[in-house]
Nucleic acid binder design. Sequence first.
DNA 1: GTCTATAACAGGATAGAC
DNA 2: GTCTATCCTGTTATAGAC
Lengths: 202, 202
Amino acid sequence: MSKDETTEQKILEAAKRVFQKKGMGGARMQEIADEAGINKALLHYYFRNKEQLFEGIYKESFRKIFPQFNEILATDEPMEKKMATLVNNYIDMLLENPQLPSFVIYEMNREPRNFLDFIQSNEVRPKFDILVNLLEEEAKKGKIKPIPAFHIVINMIAMCVFPFAAAPMIKGIAGIDDITFNKMMEERKEIVTQFILKAIEP
Amino acid sequence: MSKDETTEQKILEAAKRVFQKKGMGGARMQEIADEAGINKALLHYYFRNKEQLFEGIYKESFRKIFPQFNEILATDEPMEKKMATLVNNYIDMLLENPQLPSFVIYEMNREPRNFLDFIQSNEVRPKFDILVNLLEEEAKKGKIKPIPAFHIVINMIAMCVFPFAAAPMIKGIAGIDDITFNKMMEERKEIVTQFILKAIEP
DNA sequence: GTCTATAACAGGATAGAC
DNA sequence: GTCTATCCTGTTATAGAC
């Protein structure tokens, strides 16, 4: 943590770590203050209350976890290449933010209303339909199997995201450490891409 | 809720609902008492404390979420049939316990040590290795593609479990209600099975 | 902006009557 | 077994000095 960060930045980083690990309910303002190297009062000086601090972190998580397919899909690469890039980028993002899946899954289930309000704001609305449309077109052209496109998208996201959400289980059962786990996830980029492309071959 | 349930049963059912939705940290003894139609004091009469009540619910969840592959895999059906049965049974269980994935994912990330202790007790230890072994044998025989078997198993579980963990997102984005969601998950039994079998064809 | 001290409250747990 | 009332600890939030 560099020393010339502003206090606000330090707070936000600390809050991110603590909230992502413990969730809104389990997080403690004291712990966030400690992590940021300040005290509780100053925390409240910057963010009136816990709720407000949480909202910021929560929204930021959406921006990352909902892939913005637009740029990738706008290229004129063939579908196979686009799919590979999507999987690669998504797994890369998750390697950098491994706590994101469990955090968002917990919060969206704990307070679905809150969650739904967020994703209806234009700012963080996920745009799966672009990918769904692409797949449907490919199916019409007979270039892929006519599986309902929505399920293909869910499968792709599931295979990318789930291992991170269930990381403690995978590490525990396979008996591997963090470094080996990360290597495994690197491997998955290629494996998941091939798995999907093979599955949707006509 | 039938009226001749014992109080203990009512408590356990209420606790299950509340804990699965809110987790250990977010759950309130008051809320569990309300759901069970009793008061807090009586809750403590039956279960000394929150921790103890929680542990029971948590362990029970493992028993359900870790498929005991043994019986299914012990049959002499062909591999394709076994895979189909696994996916069917797993999705059926999840349709009956839709909150299970998000609950277990949250708790295993919140307190990994606790989680690891549990799955090392023989009672709830998952037995993925049986399926891994089967797939490796099939690969040796050249009957399936030589993809690392561990990844195939993760993919299978991911495609079954993830949609339930991320249900609020799927419902919100697709704009569907619970009934439509459940129908979609029924659909997935066949779709996921075919998706996997196609993907691992030699 | 940052701190110490403290108010205000929520939530788990217990005492004791019935 | 079940209730009401209460205690006690931990946590959020604020007041006020520097």
